[in-house]
């Protein structure tokens, strides 16, 4: 299946992916509205910066041994290879946040629940927002 991969050679640490991700998942029709009305939306992708190397990290959609197995309410599950969260069942215990080896599960802007990358299956057509927004093809959506 197609997944999001990063190529650190081309990541500029511009952080645009974070903003495109946050806006796309906010439900707002455009980025200005997403960031200017109420609490700032939290991105599900995060750029890790080093002195020479930078790259964006979001859920690897691995076999879910850590987060899915650790979830106490069954909110996390794997659907068609994508690790998804049923937010109505999340109680905010943050077991998954602690157990994800990549640090890819984040707490939402309200601070009550977790949120994570679902490859934009709920909000976007085609390529995920971070991939579309990357100016240097450092994030790609492809079969490997």
């Amino acid at each position: 299946m197609k997944k999001v991969y990063v190529n650190e050679d081309w990541c500029l640490a511009c952080h645009l992916c974070e903003f495109y991700c946050a806006a796309a998942n906010s439900g707002a029709p455009d980025m200005v509205k997403a960031f200017k009305s109420g609490k700032k939306p939290v991105p599900r992708i995060q750029v890790e910066e080093g002195s020479d190397v930078n790259f964006a990290v979001q859920c690897r959609h691995c076999d879910g041994k850590a987060c899915v197995k650790g979830c106490i309410t069954g909110a996390l599950s794997i659907k068609d290879g994508v690790v998804v969260c049923d937010e109505s069942r999340c109680v905010g215990c943050y077991t998954c946040v602690l157990s994800c080896p990549f640090g890819c599960i984040v707490i939402d802007e309200e601070g009550h629940r977790i949120q994570k990358c679902d490859l934009c299956t709920k909000n976007h057509d085609g390529e995920p927002a971070c991939v579309q927004g990357c100016p240097n093809k450092a994030i790609v959506f492809e079969e490997r």
Binding site: L12, C14, H15, L16, F19, V32, F35, K36
Partner: peptide, 13 residues
């Protein structure tokens, strides 16, 4: 300023 969301992309670039 009505549009700027202070994402700081301009600063980084």
């Amino acid at each position: 300023s009505d549009r700027c969301i202070k994402c700081r992309v301009c600063e980084r670039q």
